[in-house]
Design a protein around this nucleic acid. Structure first.
Lengths: 133, 133
DNA sequence: ATTACATATTCGGAATATCGAATGTCCTAA
DNA sequence: TTAGGACATTCGATATTCCGAATATGTAAT
């Protein structure tokens, strides 16, 4: 059975995504496999630096390579993940601004749901007392 | 019209996600609004540190708060984005391992597609010469 | 006013990330 | 075997992140 990644590994994975150059590399690889020299022409970074970023992506299991003579063809090891990630961060969701009243409603809804699920356990009223306005 | 975020902003957004404590905070907020004191009980971190992480999340426009008396109720400013992000990184995609032959096929497919799209432009054979095995 | 609480900000140091330069490794052609 | 190309790795400098301690700010009860 596939094991769910813990918080630490998840943060590591996201860190691997969190760099302009690495995002650009992933974007390029989405288009097809490329060797380092190809990327050198495509990206505003030196060879050594690109190799360094590729190492980070490799450790995160986001890319892998196949050796082809003296070249290394890099490709996405988890193409769906990368595709969905880039789509997600590019989506530009609207930022919501909520009123205190809405927040209050949320909390009450949440408290009610909790109470329902705790119907069997005796005391559930452990909410810290609210101050009056 | 909604503007597509550039690579720099995208990396910033991902950085905001890339920390165990911040992931935990977002996870908690997915459940409903919470104030800092609530989170102190829920997370293995001190008050100041939680406030610092909340500041990062605020700057990334991932959370916002509504003041309620002396408390601050934090909530997700882009709940769908957070939900989808956590689902995505928790998905645990299989890591693919490709053979050199598959890579080669990929490259040829790509070259063919490029040629098709470049049918109008005169010279398209600018591929660097491949070395023999 | 004073006090207490909830939360934010600032500061300093440790840990980590980033990058260029130099160097090392591996492969292939001659 | 030697030379050159394609990459990777190491190193040192700079920048950034992270966290605890101390301190500041704002609100409300007394």
């Amino acid at each position: 059975m596939p094991t769910t990644p813990d918080a630490r590994t998840t943060a590591e994975l996201l860190k691997a995504f969190s760099h302009t150059t690495r995002l650009a590399i992933l974007q390029e690889l989405l288009d097809g496999p490329k060797c380092v020299t190809d990327m050198e022409e495509l990206l505003p970074a030196r060879q050594a630096n690109i190799s360094q970023h590729l190492a980070v992506l490799r450790h995160a299991h986001l890319v892998d390579y196949a050796q082809d003579g003296s070249l290394r063809c890099y490709y996405l090891a988890r193409p769906e993940l990368v595709k969905d990630m880039l789509a997600l961060v590019g989506r530009g969701d609207a930022v919501v601004k909520r009123t205190p009243a809405e927040i209050q409603a949320d909390k009450e809804r949440l408290a009610k749901a909790k109470a329902r699920s705790n119907q069997a356990s005796a005391r559930q009223g452990v909410r810290r007392p609210r101050v009056k306005r």
